[in-house]
């Protein structure tokens, strides 16, 4: 099986571009989608952003210099597009903030114990209240289990910056949960 880098080289040499692109997309589509969905919550929004991300990948892959791994590069595009979406959503006065917009009523689905569902709601509220950049670092660290250097490359910060964001996110969630 060809590596991502070899596929990128094939794409840049115009060898069966569509087939090569499809292979790269199939390898990474789930992780890209989940990274977006964890931030925007709604499937329709995540789908729109994911399509935009892959469209950008198609348009820019020719000029990709392979200074980082292909997956890091795609995650970085997804990160930027997600932040753009969230900022646009915030600016739109008619749109509810994501914390209010989130469907907490259905958050307890799958929990028979009411105490568990309360914990679940509290957790989701706490996560939603963490600033976007800290929240995304938290998500990438916990759910994607990414190392700090990769998180730093995706979010365009230093390893120290990524670590600080992660600990700030934890601290913020702790404060929110204590209040509740």
């Amino acid at each position: 099986m060809l590596s991502d880098q070899e596929l990128v080289i094939q794409f840049q040499k115009e060898h069966e571009k569509e087939a090569v692109f499809t292979e790269l997309l199939k390898r990474h589509q789930q992780k890209v989608y989940y990274q977006i969905k964890r931030m925007v919550n709604e499937h329709a929004d995540a789908d729109d952003i994911a399509q935009l991300v892959w469209l950008k990948v198609w348009n820019k892959l020719e000029g990709f210099k392979m200074e980082s791994e292909f997956s890091t590069w795609v995650f970085r595009i997804a990160y930027n597009e997600t932040l753009n979406f969230l900022q646009k959503q915030k600016r739109d006065s008619q749109h509810l903030l994501s914390s209010e917009h989130y469907d907490y009523e259905n958050a307890n689905v799958g929990f028979d114990d009411p105490k568990s569902s309360q914990i679940q709601i509290a957790l989701e509220r706490a996560i939603q209240q963490v600033p976007e950049k800290q929240r995304i670092v938290f998500m990438l660290r916990y759910f994607e289990e990414l190392p700090y250097d990769k998180i730093a490359a995706i979010t365009g910060t230093t390893v120290g910056g990524a670590k600080a964001n992660f600990h700030q996110a934890l601290k913020k969630m702790q404060e929110i949960l204590k209040k509740n």
Binding site: Y34, K37, A107, S116, I119, L123, I127, F143, L177
Partner: peptide, 14 residues
């Protein structure tokens, strides 16, 4: 801080 079961439920939901 957040309990493992709540986190795994959140993960599944996402």
């Amino acid at each position: 801080l957040l309990t493992k079961s709540a986190l795994s439920h959140l993960c599944a939901k996402q």
